[in-house]
Computed example of a mutant assay.
Amino acid sequence: MSNPEQKKAEDNHKKNAIGLDDNIAGMLCYIFIIGLIFLFMEKENRFIRFHALQAVFLGVALFIISLVLGVIPIIGWLVSLLMGPITLVLVIFMMYKAYQGTSYKLPFIGDMVEKQLKS
């Protein structure tokens, strides 16, 4: 491989503090524990920090919603049964968007993440 071709290939697969391509690291952030680890490890890369912080906020929000629904008799219990499949679809969608290299913002949570990253 010649020098210009090698440089172009390296530019397409940027590495970061974690040692992974940005889109792969962003995708892995939506696995909750990995998102926490990446949040503490990555200090420079805004793309990875965005996805890691959004994944953590999403995990906390889903945990609180499931706690509240668990306290509500019958209707809350039925809705909490739907939370599992809905959460799975949402996490897969967010992983897909991160893999594409986009910073897709979830309503409310995405805005909170943007504020945190600016400060």
Score class of each variant (00 low, 15 high):
95 M>D: 07
93 F>K: 07
73 P>M: 15
41 M>K: 14
64 I>R: 01
15 K>L: 13
74 I>D: 10
57 F>R: 02
3 N>E: 14
26 G>H: 05
46 R>G: 10
110 G>C: 02
6 Q>C: 03
1 M>I: 13
76 G>Q: 06
48 I>F: 05
69 L>F: 10
64 I>A: 01
44 E>P: 13
38 F>I: 02
24 I>P: 04
103 S>P: 08
86 I>C: 09
67 L>N: 09
102 T>Q: 14
76 G>W: 04
2 S>R: 10
99 Y>V: 02
29 C>E: 11
45 N>G: 09
3 N>Q: 12
18 I>E: 06
68 V>Q: 01
102 T>P: 00
12 N>I: 08
9 A>N: 11
12 N>P: 07
16 N>P: 14
44 E>D: 15
19 G>W: 09
24 I>L: 11
11 D>P: 08
62 L>E: 11
78 L>N: 01
24 I>T: 13
22 D>F: 12
10 E>W: 08
9 A>M: 07
34 I>M: 01
80 S>C: 07
26 G>V: 05
55 A>H: 00
47 F>M: 09
113 V>P: 05
93 F>E: 11
119 S>V: 09
46 R>T: 15
96 Y>A: 15
106 L>T: 12
36 L>Y: 01
2 S>H: 10
86 I>G: 04
82 L>G: 11
50 F>H: 05
58 L>W: 03
5 E>K: 06
88 L>Q: 13
72 I>D: 03
73 P>D: 14
67 L>D: 04
88 L>D: 14
102 T>Y: 11
58 L>N: 02
116 Q>I: 03
15 K>A: 12
62 L>D: 08
55 A>Q: 01
32 F>T: 11
38 F>P: 00
28 L>F: 11
117 L>W: 06
75 I>T: 13
61 A>G: 01
17 A>M: 15
23 N>T: 14
48 I>W: 04
46 R>Y: 12
107 P>M: 07
27 M>A: 14
69 L>C: 12
45 N>W: 02
78 L>R: 00
2 S>F: 05
90 L>F: 07
103 S>K: 05
92 I>G: 03
99 Y>F: 05
31 I>A: 00
57 F>K: 04
79 V>Y: 01
20 L>F: 15
49 R>L: 10
43 K>H: 09
118 K>R: 02
93 F>A: 13
11 D>F: 05
71 V>G: 06
9 A>E: 10
55 A>M: 00
85 P>G: 07
53 L>C: 04
64 I>C: 00
67 L>M: 10
25 A>K: 08
104 Y>N: 07
80 S>I: 09
94 M>K: 03
98 A>R: 12
55 A>N: 00
119 S>G: 13
44 E>S: 14
78 L>V: 06
74 I>M: 10
64 I>S: 01
105 K>T: 12
63 F>N: 09
17 A>R: 15
99 Y>Q: 07
114 E>P: 13
1 M>Q: 07
89 V>P: 01
41 M>L: 13
22 D>M: 14
42 E>M: 06
111 D>K: 12
115 K>M: 02
19 G>Y: 09
39 L>Q: 10
36 L>H: 01
11 D>S: 12
80 S>K: 08
107 P>T: 12
70 G>C: 04
93 F>S: 09
54 Q>N: 11
